[in-house]
Simulated assay, not measured.
Amino acid sequence: MDLLIWPIQTESTNRGSATSDMVNQNEDQHNEYSTLLHATTYYLLLSITRVGNCQIPHQSRALFKTVVTVQPNWPQIFSGEKITLRCEIQGGGHTEWTYEWTTTSSNTFPTDNRYIIIRATESHSGQYRCLGRRDTYTSTEWSEAITLKVLSYKPWAELTAVNRDIPVGGSVILTCSRYFWYRDEKTSQPLTSQDVVFLSNRRIRVSVGGVYWCRGGRGEPVYYTEYSYSITVNKKREAVVSLQPNWSEIYSGEKITLRCEITDEGHTEWTYGWTTPSSIKFPTEIDTPY
C-alpha cells in the first residue's frame, strides 16, 4: 500500500508587507497540519505492518502422505480375479476425508478410499494415484503411482507323472503346479487326505487307479486356474492261476479246471488272457475246464 503525501504550498501574495501576526498564524497552522499528518502516517504504517504480519490461509499438504495399496498383493493378476485398491493416508488420524483418484486406465473412480474390482480385465491395467482432501485448505500430495497389470488369460495347471502304472501293492506319485486335485470327474469335490497321500512340493501319492486332474486356486472368493490335462493311472493287480482239483498227480482222462483269480477284484468286469507252452487255445473266461 502506497501513501501519497502532497507538499503544502503557501500561497504567494503581492501585498507589500505582511504583519507578523499573520506570519505567526500561518506557522502555527502549518505545525498543526504537519503533526496531524505525521500521526495519520504512523497509524497507516502501523496498520500496513499488522496486515503484512497476518497469516493468509493456504492449503496444507506437508503433514500427510498418501499410499495406494493393492489387495491381494500378487506379482501377477489374471483376468477374472477380484482386486481391491485402497488409498491410505499416513498420519491422517480419524478425520473425515474425501478422495480423488487418477489413472491411465479407462475406468472411473468414486470418492471413497477403496475401489473394488469384482472381475479384473485388461481395461483395468494402468497406473493409479490418489490424494485425500479434508477441507478447503487441507489436502495431501498425490501419491506415488502404482502399476496394475491384468493378464488377459487364466493360468493353466500342469500335471506330470513319472510312472502311470501302479504296481501291485504300490503307488505312483503325481506332481501338479497347483494344489487342487481331482479324480475321474472335473466337477467332483477335490481329493482329501482320505483319498490320497499329500506330499511336499505339490505332489500326491496315489494307490487307486483312475483319471486324475488338478488346478490351482487363490483369493477369497477362490479364483481357479484352468484344469490341467488329465493323466490316467492304471492299477496293476496280481493274477493267480489255481488248479481244481489240486492233486499232486493228474492222470489221463481226469477233469481238471484252471482258474484265473485276480486279487482285490471287487465287482469289476474282467476279460482274461491265457498263455501256455502247449498247443491248446484258451478262452477269455475265468474258468478253463479240460
Score class of each variant (00 low, 15 high):
residue 252 S to F: 04
residue 20 S to T: 13
residue 47 S to Y: 07
residue 71 Q to P: 01
residue 238 E to F: 08
residue 238 E to G: 10
residue 216 G to E: 01
residue 34 S to L: 13
residue 278 S to I: 11
residue 157 A to G: 01
residue 273 G to N: 06
residue 47 S to L: 12
residue 281 K to H: 13
residue 143 S to K: 03
residue 28 D to L: 15
residue 93 G to R: 12
residue 269 E to H: 09
residue 52 G to Q: 07
residue 98 T to C: 04
residue 290 Y to H: 09
residue 217 G to H: 14
residue 113 N to C: 07
residue 35 T to Y: 12
residue 274 W to C: 04
residue 18 A to H: 14
residue 94 H to G: 10
residue 125 S to A: 08
residue 131 L to R: 15
residue 58 H to A: 01
residue 1 M to W: 05
residue 122 E to N: 12
residue 91 G to W: 10
residue 271 T to A: 03
residue 36 L to Q: 14
residue 268 T to M: 02
residue 273 G to H: 13
residue 9 Q to V: 15
residue 134 R to K: 15
residue 2 D to F: 03
residue 15 R to G: 04
residue 20 S to Q: 08
residue 47 S to K: 15
residue 243 L to C: 10
residue 91 G to P: 02
residue 6 W to V: 06
residue 179 Y to G: 09
residue 111 T to K: 09
residue 241 V to D: 03
residue 68 V to M: 06
residue 56 I to D: 08
residue 10 T to C: 00
residue 287 D to H: 11
residue 290 Y to P: 04
residue 84 T to E: 15
residue 41 T to Q: 08
residue 201 N to F: 07
residue 18 A to W: 06
residue 173 I to F: 13
residue 19 T to I: 00
residue 189 Q to D: 10
residue 122 E to R: 09
residue 51 V to G: 03
residue 134 R to G: 11
residue 276 T to K: 15
residue 284 T to Q: 06
residue 257 T to Y: 13
residue 267 H to P: 00
residue 44 L to I: 14
residue 211 V to H: 09
residue 171 S to M: 10
residue 147 T to I: 05
residue 243 L to P: 04
residue 174 L to W: 12
residue 198 F to P: 01
residue 118 I to H: 06
residue 284 T to F: 02
residue 50 R to G: 00
residue 105 S to D: 12
residue 216 G to R: 15
residue 208 V to H: 08
residue 285 E to I: 04
residue 28 D to F: 09
residue 142 W to R: 05
residue 55 Q to T: 14
residue 166 I to P: 05
residue 60 S to P: 00
residue 225 T to H: 11
residue 206 V to L: 01
residue 24 N to L: 13
residue 269 E to L: 03
residue 62 A to D: 04
residue 119 R to P: 07
residue 248 S to F: 03
residue 199 L to N: 07
residue 208 V to K: 13
residue 50 R to I: 08
residue 44 L to D: 00
residue 205 R to T: 03
residue 15 R to K: 08
residue 7 P to A: 10
residue 258 L to H: 07
residue 189 Q to L: 08
residue 4 L to W: 06
residue 189 Q to T: 08
residue 190 P to L: 07
residue 121 T to A: 07
residue 51 V to I: 11
residue 118 I to T: 14
residue 267 H to Q: 05
